[in-house]
Structures are given as C-alpha cells and as structure tokens.
C-alpha cells in the first residue's frame, strides 16, 4: 500500500502523518481546554513554524473566532465537529481522512459540516470520506468505493449505477403505457416495463433516446417527457453487495 506515492511502512509512517489530516468519528477534543488551546497543541505537534498564526487562520477559516476562548465542553456537537475539522486541516495536509463526519449530528449541523467538506473542493488535496450515509456520499463524493472487508467496487456514482443497472429512461405518455410494450419489444427494445402512463426502458448501445422516442411516435404514442431514471446510491450499494455475495 502506498500513500502519495510513498510506500506505507513503519519507517515512513511518521513522515506520512505530517501529510495526512484525520477527522475521527468522535471529535476527540479535550473538554477542559479552550478551542484555541486544543488547536494550539496540534499546531505544535505538527511543528508548524508559527503555531499561533496557524490557529488564528484556522479559527477564521472555520468562523470560530468568537468561540476561540470557550471550553470545547461548552460547544454544541456541530461546533465541536467544526473545531475537529479545523484541527485536521491545521497543517494543510495533502490527504484528509474523514471518518463519519456527520455521524450523530442534527440535520442543520450535518449540512454545515457537509458545506465545509464541499468547501475543500479545489484545495488541491484528496479527501477520503468514510460513511454509512449514502445520501451524504451522493452529495459530496466525486468517486465512491464500496467496501465489505475488501473493495467491492469503485467509481463515480454514475459509473456504479451504469455498471449495475445500465442506463434507463423514464418516459411519460398521455395514455396507458402498457399498450406500447409489445410494439417496442417487436422493434428490438426488450427491456421495457409499464406502470400507468409511465414506461421504464433500459437503453443499450444500439437503442438511444432519440431512437426510442421515434419508435414510440411511430407506434402512435404521445410522449410528454423523457428523463433519465437513476437508481439511488442506496440501491446501487445494496445491489453491489448482493452481486459481491453472489460471486463469492
């Protein structure tokens, strides 16, 4: 295993720790110390050239200046997580590991933390976020890795969907959709499901959306709308685990 091109060994671990920021599931703050004191210890442990300046920058970046002298025990869960996030970025690491960053937070605090995580985009660092919250993964992750003891699959959410479910579209018609299943199958589009006035159609390399719409119009259908049909990441996740269990 290597991190940032550096093989991960006991000898290289210390140097690598300087380049990695870790946000643990629990904020892990010292309750009897103030926000500033908490951050200052870490700035010194990372041997930053000017620890006080680094802490001041972090307080500003995370909008914590007004809370700097408060004991961390007095902060809300969301604010504690914010301080922990500031701590993990104090030394401007190349890689940031976030372990369940919104675990146990109320929706408002969770959104706040997600905004901060999204704010790391463009900061030229890799952000690795571990979560069981698939909605969160969908919102913040560019690429997703599904793990079950070992790596099951990795890719963008779109790639994972396509791998498992292919590409589907949802076509809304003006009348009963079931009447158009047979004409489509007869024209070579086999993966067709109807429900009320909606058709769910699986596309492949030969069948594109314009081709599908043309076939429907030729069959006499009146098309209201065509939208991509996306499985949720949760469906993708469960599907990948089932597929993994089936193959193992």
């Amino acid at each position: 295993m290597s991190i940032l091109g550096e093989p991960l060994t006991t000898a290289s671990a210390r140097a690598l720790r300087r380049r990695i920021g870790l946000l643990t599931e629990a904020p892990g703050l010292w309750d009897r110390l103030t926000v500033t004191q908490n951050l200052l210890v870490y700035a010194r442990l990372h041997r930053l050239p000017s620890p006080s300046d680094a802490v001041a920058r972090a307080l500003d970046a995370f909008d914590m200046r007004s809370r700097a002298d408060e004991l961390t025990a007095q902060l809300s869960k969301g604010l504690r997580q914010r301080v922990a996030l500031a701590r993990s970025l104090l030394h401007e690491p190349d890689v940031v590991l976030l372990d369940e960053p919104t675990g146990g937070l109320d929706p408002e605090s969770a959104r706040d933390v997600r905004t901060l995580v999204n704010g790391m985009r463009g900061s030229r660092r890799a952000v690795l976020l571990s979560t069981h919250n698939l909605d969160e993964a969908e919102r913040v992750a560019d690429r997703v890795a599904v793990l079950r003891t070992r790596l099951v699959a990795a890719g963008t959410p779109r790639e994972l969907r396509a791998r498992l479910f292919g590409t589907r579209v949802r076509v809304v018609l003006t009348g009963d959709a079931a009447a158009f299943c047979e004409p489509l199958r007869a024209s070579g589009i086999a993966d067709v499901r109807a429900s009320g006035s909606v058709l769910s159609v699986g596309l492949d390399g030969r069948t594109t959306t314009p081709v599908l719409v043309r076939r429907l119009v030729e069959a006499g259908a009146s098309v209201e709308s065509v939208v991509p049909e996306e499985a949720s990441l949760e469906e993708v996740y469960l599907g990948l685990l089932r597929a993994g269990a089936g193959s193992s």
């Binding site: 210390r14 720790r17 300087r18 870790l22 643990t24 629990a26 892990g28 309750d31």
Partner: peptide, 14 residues
C-alpha cells in the same frame, strides 16, 4: 475512553 487519543496518534508524535 474520551476518544481523544485517536487524533493524537494521527500526528507525527512518536
């Protein structure tokens, strides 16, 4: 127990 050791061990401290 307070879960403050994990972030501490992730620093370069020996």
């Amino acid at each position: 127990q307070a879960r403050t050791l994990e972030p501490l061990l992730a620093t370069p401290i020996t």
